[in-house]
Write a protein that binds this DNA or RNA. Structure first.
Lengths: 233, 233
DNA sequence: ACCTGAACACCGTTCAAGT
DNA sequence: ACCTGAACACCGTTCAAGT
């Protein structure tokens, strides 16, 4: 049998191809579709073949997150510090919104890859550029929490109801709510400008994100101007 | 065969017994130990027996969260609004810290049970008692995010390293970091007061939580005093 | 009304082998 | 160096039956 028998049936795998395929699969079919077995099948390969390129499932997901974070654009260096930070965080948000599974992947991810550390370092650098102390920068970054990745927890997230509620159901729900949860009802009325049929539409997450971001950036600036230092130092 | 043959081998299951057993199992062995099969075995019962008492896994976890949220103590009604809110949220925090799995369960949970809604309503009521508009209350609650449940995302969380790094490793790590992540290094130095061997100890989560909580409550009060209203109204 | 048994369609990962 | 096959020890859930 001559040794030019069978050409390789497909391109060689490498880490990059595995990660890009995983990202594409998650974009198309959601994060749950990205199992080691499902991804392998997608690549026309046996599950165990993937383990030559990623140590385990966790590293696969971290790698996928790195791909997303790679899409963050650094802000114009000429920008004043607050605008630069806002731009960086909103760029992270655009990247995360492009890949709807990324939020969950980041929340569940346990690995601090170089890409993750680089973004955290850049955000910290943004505050330092504004003159905030390392101490204050540290605590403010904790306060921002996952917002440095461009998302906030979806507090009022709703599992899309199969059917939009009928007017009667709405009526009944309204009465039930008014009794038991009067303050949530008030909020829902305010958020939908009185049109409760739009309650299912959810909140304007972009507005909520920017509202919280401004609140926290302003708070940080105010504490900095006031010469804040943690009591322990 | 007389009908008094075999007495029931164990107490009858009911929803409450199932949920309490699940909470106890998670407290002892972590959330991953609470599989339908694992819990069933723990109860000396076949997996399918549980499905008479909870619709599915998701409802089991929601029920477990409800048990935890049931431990929140309402604040003294005589308290001024900010202190009352702080007390309520810190009580939620104590409940969540008592059950280390609860954070993850809340983040992953998709169901808004009456217990969940009741807590959200109480927090909203706290802001309303301070005179904040439903509009402002809504946005501030978004800004608080998961902090209303008493936890913030663990930004700098580290997977406990098997071995504490040797002084040489620390040295090397420090040099590597100083080069690539100078701002994170600064923060680590500030947080550990210069003793980098304590970096593995993690941050003072209680301090970070209260810092962010105060920042957000103060920000809310400031906006309220300034007569803030969202542009859209 | 409540519980059981067997089965279905999945997981991540180890180990020993193939080319 | 890279991929395969078979196996292990798990999942959640459906369906039809038992008492």
């Amino acid at each position: 049998m001559p040794r030019d028998a069978a050409p390789p049936r497909r391109e060689r795998l490498d880490r990059d191809r595995v990660l890009r395929a995983a990202v594409a699969l998650a974009d198309d079919s959601g994060l749950d579709a990205v199992s080691m077995r499902g991804l392998a099948q997608h690549l026309g390969v046996v599950p165990m073949a993937l383990y030559k390129h990623v140590a385990d499932k966790d590293e696969l997901v971290s790698g996928m997150v790195d791909v997303v974070l790679g899409e963050i654009e650094p802000p114009d260096p000429a920008l004043p510090w607050k605008e630069a930070l806002r731009a960086r965080v909103l760029s992270a948000r655009r990247a995360v919104l492009r890949h709807p599974w990324a939020r969950r992947a980041i929340e569940g991810s346990t690995r601090r890859t170089p890409t993750v550390l680089a973004h955290m370092d850049a955000v910290a650098g943004g505050f330092r550029a504004g003159g905030l102390s390392p101490d204050l920068t540290h605590h403010v970054m904790h306060a921002l929490g996952n917002r440095i990745w461009g998302f906030s927890p979806e507090l009022f997230e709703e599992p899309a109801p199969a059917e939009p509620p009928s007017p009667e159901q709405q009526e009944a729900m309204g009465r039930e709510f008014a009794q038991r949860y009067p303050h949530i009802l008030e909020i829902a009325v305010a958020a939908t400008r009185g049109d409760l049929s739009r309650v299912g539409g959810g909140c304007d997450e972009q507005f909520e994100f920017e509202f919280a971001l401004e609140l926290l950036l302003d708070g940080a600036e105010r504490l900095h101007r006031a010469g804040w230092a943690s009591a322990a130092r």
